[in-house]
Design a protein around this nucleic acid. Structure first.
Lengths: 315, 315
DNA sequence: ATTAATTACGTAACTGATTACGCAAATATA
DNA sequence: TATATTTGCGTAATCAGTTACGTAATTAAT
């Protein structure tokens, strides 16, 4: 069968098809019992047969339909004399729907049908290994906790992370190092003197001073950079800085991989800690730093105007 | 949740709702991958990406849609430049659809999406006790073997049989005995002299001669009758006759219960066999006699014109 | 006490499927 | 070879739901 071959991508279509098949039979089942109800009326009818009048939106919410859907169904049922509509005395907007005498007669007649359908389905399900009701319950529970979309997004990220490699800086990446940083800085702030100095001469200002730079490649193309800078400070040994990830490569976990590489490097150098400066406007960056284990600390003097938050990761 | 409360009657609705939820997410998943496909196009797209051109009906049959549905989908996809249509050289009626270059590019792009969706769903399903795919397989298999309608019908019959009681004839049923028989005879044939004799005087012509009559009550109301008549014949001991079931009580297994009662009575009387006469036009009756164990035999002389088949049950 | 926001619900338009129907091409039959 | 039947597929109408939007009634805020 086609849907077994296609795989999980087509679960939606398959569910719809089974649903149609069942509804088709349902139509005939109603006529079998001489009950003049359309299958689509059933959820509304059921709600009303267990209560003394409910408003349109209340019905819609309990059965999980939109209110126009209920509105239409109620009108059809009213035409058949199964329900009657009255506006609420206290709230003129509300349309209170309840079963007529005829409707109540149907409610009695239909009891046998409930019994038979329940037994028929139960008997069938008893023969299965995987109970479809329970399967639906479980699957809906899982989707409630985390939507299909989110699950696929996560899977995408995991797969794409495999195409990302973090390598040590080489001189050929000098323009990428500058451009990637320039891009994000100018997007949110403006380039400062200190930026130009470091971005134009990474060797002199970072590497030669005992620092390190990492480059993230996505399918061999440089899409992110991050530096570990040596600090001359009594309390701090290293600083994480110049982290930049290209916009088109966002959402692949590249920032996390770069941060991890820098932190791991610092650890391997027996650093006591890593320090960093950022701006609270950069919410995704701050979130990332938290994930990496950084905590907010009181500020240090900094040459950068844009900096308004200071963080530290203690080993 | 509503649908758990309602029970099996609403399985169709519930499946549809989950299907909608999934399709909703699917829409966003496509855009996540920059693939310009509507979810509803997917089955058609999938078929085409695995073949070199197929006709509308062939696609419709493989994906289990109606052909107008495929026709519309193809037109939409053609408008987007994803597929192209050409009429078949050998058969001018056929519209052969295949992917364009653009379509093939999408087919490549979408591969990653297949992978991610599959893994995402599989990961979710791994956490369930009742696998929804397997549940669907099993349930569809069961429905293929016996439709939901048939299952409910059977259940209805079983329940209604419980409301049927088979009791010995009493004089107060004399009009029912006559009317029920008259109804079916005049519906298919015409009343004969022999009929009137027996129907007007059951005591004289049946009971006093060593025969028996049974009455079927449905909810205390007489809805069927059947007689076991003593025969004066070297080969046959008893005859099953005057079986009648009211139209409004058909499909409740009443005929079977009456037949069973008569046959059991004959057995308890140490009869060697039971004989009967009928007409091949009465297909449900003949089927019932077969179910009770009667077999066709060569005819005996009979006072009834309508009789064209003779059957015997040997103990 | 106004004014603004929210709520209830009806109408209209849209969506993704279906069945019904009709025409033309191909195939079977007399 | 002419006619009847079957097949392929497009168009139209329908169905069961949706979203979008407008209006009136109620409730909240100034």
């Amino acid at each position: 069968m086609f849907y077994n071959q296609v795989g999980n991508v087509a679960l939606g279509s398959r569910l719809r098809m089974l649903s149609e098949k069942i509804t088709e039979d349902a139509k005939q089942i109603y006529s079998l019992y001489g009950v003049n109800l359309k299958p689509k009326w059933f959820p509304v009818f059921y709600v009303l047969s267990h209560s003394e009048g409910k408003s349109i939106t209340v019905i819609a919410n309990t059965i999980g339909h939109s209110h126009p859907s209920v509105s239409k169904i109620v009108r059809e049922m009213a035409k058949e004399g199964i329900v009657m509509e009255n506006s609420d005395k206290d709230d003129g907007r509300k349309n209170i729907v309840q079963l007529t005498e005829k409707g109540k007669e149907i409610a009695v007649k239909i009891e046998d049908q409930y019994l038979d359908v329940n037994l028929a389905v139960e008997e069938a399900l008893a023969q299965t290994q995987n109970n479809i009701w329970k399967a639906l319950d479980e699957f809906e529970f899982l989707l409630d906790r985390k939507s299909l979309l989110k699950r696929v997004q996560d899977q995408k990220k995991i797969r794409e992370m495999k195409n990302v490699s973090i390598i040590p800086y080489e001189n050929k990446y000098i323009t990428d190092f500058k451009q990637l940083n320039k891009d994000w800085i100018t997007k949110y702030f403006k380039l400062e003197g200190a930026d130009n100095k470091v971005l134009d001469h990474p060797k002199e200002y970072i590497l030669d001073k005992g620092g390190y730079i990492f480059v993230a490649l996505y399918k061999e193309e440089p899409v992110g950079v991050c530096a570990l800078l040596k600090m001359e400070h009594p309390d701090y040994d290293y600083e994480l800085g110049k982290m930049a990830v290209s916009d088109k490569a966002k959402g692949k976990g590249i920032g996390w991989l770069l941060g991890k590489a820098v932190v791991d490097k610092a650890k391997s150098l027996n650093a006591r800690n890593v320090y960093l400066e950022s701006n609270t406007k950069l919410i995704p960056a701050i979130t990332l730093y938290h994930k990496l284990g950084f905590k907010k600390v009181a500020g240090q003097p900094t040459p950068y105007e844009r900096c308004n938050i200071h963080m530290e990761l203690k080993f």
